[in-house]
Design a protein around this nucleic acid. Sequence first.
DNA 1: GACAGCCTATGACAGTTGTAGTAGATTCAA
DNA 2: TTGAATCTACTACAACTGTCATAGGCTGTC
Lengths: 140, 140
Amino acid sequence: MDRKKSIKLTRFELEIMQVLWELGSGSVREIQERLPEKRRPAYTTVQTIVRRLEEKEAVRRLKKIGNAFIFEPLITRRSAHHRLINELLESFGGSARPLMAHLAETGKLSLEDLKELEDIVAQRAADVSGKSSKTAKRSD
Amino acid sequence: MDRKKSIKLTRFELEIMQVLWELGSGSVREIQERLPEKRRPAYTTVQTIVRRLEEKEAVRRLKKIGNAFIFEPLITRRSAHHRLINELLESFGGSARPLMAHLAETGKLSLEDLKELEDIVAQRAADVSGKSSKTAKRSD
DNA sequence: GACAGCCTATGACAGTTGTAGTAGATTCAA
DNA sequence: TTGAATCTACTACAACTGTCATAGGCTGTC
């Protein structure tokens, strides 16, 4: 599907992207202030990561306010999550089952969760057979 | 639960652990030969990773055959997977839902999968209330 | 008992990642 | 218009990773 062969993000880069996805856009200062007080890195550390994200084309400069740049994400949270999940699945031999089983066993998954998921899967099956939508409607 | 605050493995280290989990135990040579022909690293590269795994106490020397050491895993596949999953969940804000939804949407999850999961979850709920087992029976 | 062949122990190195300091540009309030 | 505050650009660096080469130690065989 996606031709933009998805960008690889490090843990910290991902954390900063999370902030940007929440904010929509923001300056280095804003990003830094949204990071958890515990272990909040120096301003220039955040700046460095944002620069690397720029190089990777994961964010871009949207505009300038005062003398500060405002950055915005160029990749979606969804696509990033997509990548993470696929990477994890690879480590598991490609099957989602062990992953699911783990979640179920460790109580991270409730019966209600599963019911809702069934709806999603059923809906998806219907869409596919009905060919009603190419990429289904969704938010996130 | 686990007091052994779980070892952090890199991708390659994990790949080698996978081989060892499958073999039960093996020499550097055996491990190397089990790696996919495409991109199979040099013998000494595998050796280096195994050494690092030793340092991390993820494997140990079980015995010596001829002049070669035979290594065996010290951590379970299960605990390693556990860690990976938890790390992923953290990136998702701790909730399994987005992860599950993603799997459902991308068709990695079938209705049968979900049905079986319901059994697991239901069983788990029963165990917990009934206090019948401490760590439930399982294979993996 | 000497040697080819495989093994181990070590060292090395470049790329990535997290972390931050410094210097100089820009801004804005007085 | 000037000076403090705030930014950006650049540099640095150690730890971690993937990758391998080299040197020297065993072993099994003729």
